[in-house]
Write a protein that binds this DNA or RNA. Structure first.
Lengths: 95, 95
DNA sequence: TAAAGTAGTTTATTTTATAAACCAAATACA
DNA sequence: TGTATTTGGTTTATAAAATAAACTACTTTA
């Protein structure tokens, strides 16, 4: 047995929720993610940055008409990391 | 959909590992838990205290001959909390 | 009997998460 | 028209958590 190391970047409630969301929808904008995860803008901004720095998501900043629009997209590396995390944590859940 | 709140007491790698272990073995001593979870004594001591304070485990301190022996046991409340956590995090894992 | 090992606890440091404050532009409204 | 208010965020400060390092107390071994 033995418990394997959980990716600390994914073992965070908000970042995990973001990744979970992006796994299913492919791309989502800041406001949508904020609503779905019920997070504050500040916290979300910080966590998206971390996921982006890790190369797990891509952040695209554009303008929608005159309003800024931040869109997030999961990367192949992010998909891999998420899949691995899911396998790893399962070991903790069913002993 | 929406992501439900994960019990912060269980959403910690070491505490989750401890609970996962105790769910399957019922009782285990400090040294055994330390080995199985590959944790340091200091970190384990702190995390066991938190689980105990939350009423998720019971800590029994005795002497085995002349050596101190700390034994941990999961409580019914701990079992419940663990089960709930497992259900809750599944929502994050399979979207 | 001095050195090393066992079984932990306590304290300090680092890392994370969260909250609060801030910014720039757009829109509503009196 | 100009002044609140809202939108869509970022940055900075604070609180909480995890981890590591240092320490305690006792035991065993050489």
């Amino acid at each position: 047995m033995g418990f394997n190391q959980l990716d600390p970047l994914l073992h965070s409630q908000l970042r995990l929720a973001v990744m979970s969301l992006l796994i299913s929808v492919e791309t989502a904008d800041f406001v949508f993610i904020k609503e779905q995860t019920e997070s504050t803008a500040g916290n979300l901004s910080v966590q998206l940055d971390k996921l982006s720095t890790a190369g797990y998501i891509e952040i695209i900043k554009q303008f929608e008409g005159k309003k800024p629009k931040t869109t997030c997209k999961i990367t192949p590396k992010g998909v891999d990391a998420f899949d691995t995390y899911v396998k790893e944590i399962q070991q903790y859940l069913k002993p």
